[in-house]
Design a protein around this nucleic acid. Sequence first.
DNA 1: TTGATACCCGACCAGAATACTATGGTATCA
DNA 2: TGATACCATAGTATTCTGGTCGGGTATCAA
Lengths: 130, 130
Amino acid sequence: MRLSTRGKYGLYAMHYLAQHENDGPQSLSHIADIGVPKQYLEQLLGGLRRSGLIRSVRGVNGGYQIAKPSSEITVLDILDAMEGPLELSDCIANGRCCSKAPQCRVRDMWEKLTDTINHELNSVTLKDML
Amino acid sequence: MRLSTRGKYGLYAMHYLAQHENDGPQSLSHIADIGVPKQYLEQLLGGLRRSGLIRSVRGVNGGYQIAKPSSEITVLDILDAMEGPLELSDCIANGRCCSKAPQCRVRDMWEKLTDTINHELNSVTLKDML
DNA sequence: TTGATACCCGACCAGAATACTATGGTATCA
DNA sequence: TGATACCATAGTATTCTGGTCGGGTATCAA
């Protein structure tokens, strides 16, 4: 089980923007200096914007900035925006379980683990990582 | 972030074998009744065997059985065998971090989360799920 | 000894996802 | 008006997933 680069890059970009929380909009080129291909990063930032985590300013001297204080943005917010919700098993995800549900202990384990991970991710804010 | 079917199928197969812990070897055909393509399952069982989690018996009346008591096999053992170790970020996985390590808080977060997940997975045994 | 059973193993393959790249826009402001 | 910088969609090479296929080998019963 491995996280995709989307999640990683998104987190790094948000980390950068949190560092410049009060410095006005940061241009794509500047953010890309963290080591992400510029055009690919542009896509990812689009997703973060559509999720309401960042704002963009167009035109000269434009760029991106976080839409909320860094203390109100969690790692879970970012990963959900970049990768969609955590769905360990389609048994959990879409309710299409095997015939043995609901007394299936394997399913119980998936659910518990999903909760644990989400809780952990939601307990860390961007501010915590500065 | 989604688990692959390898992990899921492996877990279901091990669950089946744990249920028949004392019934002698279970043939591939029987195990496949849990709803996994037979030839694909054969590959997965090969991996479980090479990881030392199950034993196989060849020939007539042969099959597979767990190599240790179900109380000594954890979900982590099975997922590691099926999917390789949990490597959320290659920053953690192979030590090839960006230039800012070791004072990188993002990295710290990955490490902590990895530990949490592994600990949770390791705390559930096959026996717990019977 | 022979044949049926059942595991072993590597190669192959189609489709989906990942990680980009390319191109042509549109908004803003000096 | 033109340079800057975001917006959006399409294309693409590579890898991963989820299998299938075919030909083995070990064991045992008849």
